[in-house]
Design a protein around this nucleic acid. Structure first.
Lengths: 244, 244
DNA sequence: CTTTCGCATTGACGCAGATCAACATCAGAA
DNA sequence: TTCTGATGTTGATCTGCGTCAATGCGAAAG
């Protein structure tokens, strides 16, 4: 159901992610280049804490980061899953709204926030692009409410796997409906993303495996033998071409 | 838990809502004025349908509109509740992503979309303001996941009432913690917003009334005798001042 | 190789909320 | 005013998922 943002990288651009490089002039890229730095974070390690001053904005290069909020009694909800090409951070905001954690080993490309804002002010097309991306993210976040508010456990797991298949999946050379990807989240994280317990998440994964909707190899590799079948399970009417 | 966007209107501005008028120069306001029109929609009537071409963007002047998505089997989730000062619509997008419906009688201030985009391109501060608002909406939408994914029915109802109290509530002259407002949604709509059934929504409202957390007058007037009490019920650690 | 610890799986049981059903109340029409 | 259909309330029962508990497995260290 929630539409996966399309991954866009522009070949030849030194900053290889959709947030800032699309349609940039050489001198603009150079300006961005000067304020950028890379950061590698180990799986499970915190990246930012909610409420902290926001010194950087960043783009995910590889791995998966999660945004989360934890209630006083320990209940945790993952509010966002950030995959390669996703943008983390908020220009013109002083503090970080959610805890950001590495779900798997993550590489970030960071930009010093204040300097990034200056560039935004000078280059309307970057600003416009950021607005467009944010509107996409807003739609995706609102779409997620359908998963959390109205879907059964099995449908939630299916919707989640479908998103990963679309964004991370490698299509089989001989059978385009067969897709393989590596799960970047533990069962607990999957549960916290989907509003379930880890036991229910595990049980539903097992059930999907029993029913032939997915296959697994080792602990983290998932194979979807027939993407259309998974779409049905996820109540997804979208054909994935993004042409709706 | 979800922070209510602060209502901002600027006195003397002919377009009295935060989306476009803040900090506008007279000539910019005049340009906006030329492409704007008002629309009044009766309660329950559709405003836009998902998938339709988006001819307008709009701002809610009064009443309440809802964004919703309905699955093939009839399950509905309300993805957004738009109250006065909220902005509906997406520059640079051809189609409408959600069904938009009037939950109560709604007055919209509409701008022809293409012309609005031209103004955005010419006035960076309007564009920047729209980005800032969209980022706020994104945070609010992500915060909502905590309600849908991790909160019990009673907490969901409390969180919902707290949002309305903050955005629509009139504070009692003698007791600042006593707040009154009018519910713009039916029980069914409340349930669809909170991921519950209408029976559960009704039962929890009754329970909160029995326990003295709220009082009611007629079908739609709600009185919160002690806002702090409601905040506890909603697991809300925010003090509502927006200074966090 | 074996140990070890974190993660995943599976089972048994209980409960919050869904479902089915009956009735109450309110607003608008006649 | 009364009638009528929509909306809201409350009760009885069912069930999907949460909770508690035990066991299995696999990757990294020794």
């Amino acid at each position: 159901m929630p539409l996966a943002p399309v991954q866009e990288t522009c070949a030849g651009c030194p900053i290889r992610h959709r947030a800032v490089c699309a349609h940039c002039e050489p001198q603009e890229l150079e300006r961005l280049e000067r304020i950028k730095s890379y950061a590698d974070i180990a799986a499970g390690a915190p990246i930012f804490f909610a409420g902290e001053p926001m010194r950087h904005v960043a783009s995910v290069v590889s791995g998966a980061a999660i945004l989360s909020r934890t209630l006083e009694d320990g209940r945790r909800q993952i509010n966002g899953l950030m995959l390669p090409s996703d943008f983390i951070g908020r220009p013109w905001r002083e503090t970080i709204p959610f805890d950001v954690t590495a779900a798997s080993p993550v590489r970030l490309c960071r930009f010093e926030r204040i300097a990034f804002e200056k560039i935004l002010g000078d280059t309307p097309h970057v600003s416009e692009r950021l607005l467009s991306m944010t509107l996409d993210d807003l739609d995706a976040a609102r779409d997620w409410a359908v998963v959390l508010g109205r879907m059964a456990a099995r449908e939630r797991i299916s919707a989640f796997l479908l998103i990963l298949a679309r964004r991370l999946g490698r299509t089989d050379r001989h059978d385009p409906s067969r897709v393989t990807f590596s799960l970047p989240l533990t069962r607990e994280a999957i549960a916290d993303l989907l509003g379930l317990t880890l036991e229910t998440a595990s049980r539903q994964m097992s059930a999907l495996r029993r029913d032939g909707v997915i296959e697994t190899e080792g602990r983290s590799t998932v194979i979807v033998p027939d993407l259309a079948r998974l779409q049905e399970e996820a109540q997804d009417d979208d054909d994935g071409t993004g042409l709706t």
